[in-house]
Simulated scan of single mutants.
Amino acid sequence: MFKYKTLLLLLAAVGLVSFQSDPAGEELMKFYEEHQVQGSFILYDQKNDRYTYYNQEQTNTPFTPASTFKICNSLIALETGAVKDEHTVSKWDQKERPVPAWNADTDMRNAFKNSTVWFYQELAKRVGEEKMKFWLKKANYGNGDISGGIDGFWLWGGLRITPAQQIDFLRNLHQNKLPFSARSMDIVKDIMIAKSTKDYVIRAKTGNGKQGNLYVSWYVGYITTANNVYYFSNCIQTKDKKEDFKKAGVSIAINVLDNLKVINKQDWDN
């Protein structure tokens, strides 16, 4: 381990590696402590080729992607023709679910926004196991494991992805380096828009799931400005799930991004 860290420092000194390890750990820790959770945060500044971390050691730990997989699921569904476009409506099966927005006919744009589970389960079933395995491998998404069933491998099954891999996937998406058509990637980039201001656009996705005895919550995405792109991954975990846990992932991410002066939190609150 000592030799590895020494090598990284030497590479950084000659400009072959750019990294910043927990630069404001104590400052950022307060946002996690406020919600009584553990977790990690990555920010990648594309213009300056610079990473900023909170709890860097955890950023290579694999977690269930939960609904953050909807980014990849959307791409695969579009590419394989499982859905024509973001406006194609799927009929609700009339089964009542706990989220009111899920109890209606919906299209991909609204299903992504509302994180409608049944819609994406249906898309995955249309894609099928063989094609799903093929595209996960081709896109280099996480561990590519679809055990647990085609309708839930990203929820209760074997699919895992690390925070660092989330960043890599998002970078490849924004730069059109994923093995999907420009059309598929453009559609997904569009439905990912969570906030647009005069200074920046945030494209992002939440994800909430359970892995063993841990509850896991994600907020991942990227922010485009006039002259830069910032990619972020926030992954939090707890064994004792609080009432606000699902909202905590977004809240912490916004506070960290504000603290790092990437966005203005007041814009998000308005």
Rank of each mutant, 00 (worst) to 15 (best):
T106H: 03
T106F: 04
D107K: 01
M108A: 09
R109D: 13
N110W: 03
N110L: 10
N110S: 08
A111T: 11
A111K: 02
F112K: 06
F112D: 11
F112H: 07
F112M: 15
V117P: 02
V117I: 15
V117D: 11
W118P: 03
Y120I: 07
E122D: 14
E122K: 04
E122S: 05
L123P: 00
V127C: 01
G128Q: 03
G128F: 02
E129M: 01
E129H: 00
E129P: 00
E130Q: 06
E130L: 02
E130F: 00
K131C: 03
K131F: 02
M132W: 01
M132G: 00
K133W: 05
K133N: 12
F134P: 00
F134R: 04
W135V: 01
L136C: 06
K138G: 06
A139I: 09
A139M: 09
Y141V: 05
G142H: 05
G142R: 06
G142K: 06
N143Q: 10
D145I: 10
D145T: 08
D145E: 10
D145N: 12
S147I: 13
G148A: 07
G149F: 01
I150E: 09
I150A: 04
D151C: 01
D151I: 03
D151P: 01
G152V: 05
F153V: 11
F153H: 04
L155M: 12
W156P: 00
W156M: 08
G157F: 06
G157Q: 03
G158I: 14
L159D: 11
L159P: 03
L159Q: 10
R160F: 10
R160Y: 11
I161Q: 08
I161W: 06
T162E: 09
T162W: 02
P163D: 09
Q165F: 03
I167A: 07
D168N: 08
D168E: 15
L170I: 12
L170Y: 02
L170S: 04
R171Q: 15
R171P: 01
N172D: 15
N172R: 13
L173G: 01
L173D: 09
H174I: 14
H174T: 14
H174Y: 14
Q175H: 10
Q175M: 13
Q175C: 09
Q175R: 10
L178Y: 08
P179I: 14
P179L: 12
F180I: 15
F180K: 11
R183M: 13
S184A: 15
S184M: 09
S184N: 06
S184P: 05
D186E: 15
D186C: 07
I187C: 06
I187Y: 02
I187M: 11
I187L: 13
V188G: 02
V188W: 08
V188M: 06
V188D: 07
K189T: 14
K189I: 15
D190H: 01
D190N: 06
D190I: 05
D190C: 00
M192W: 04
S196H: 12
S196M: 13
T197Y: 03
T197P: 05
D199L: 07
D199P: 01
D199R: 05
Y200Q: 12
Y200I: 15
Y200W: 13
Y200R: 08
V201T: 15
V201P: 00
V201I: 15
V201F: 03
I202D: 11
I202R: 04
R203Y: 10
R203P: 02
A204S: 14
A204M: 08
A204C: 06
T206W: 08
T206H: 07
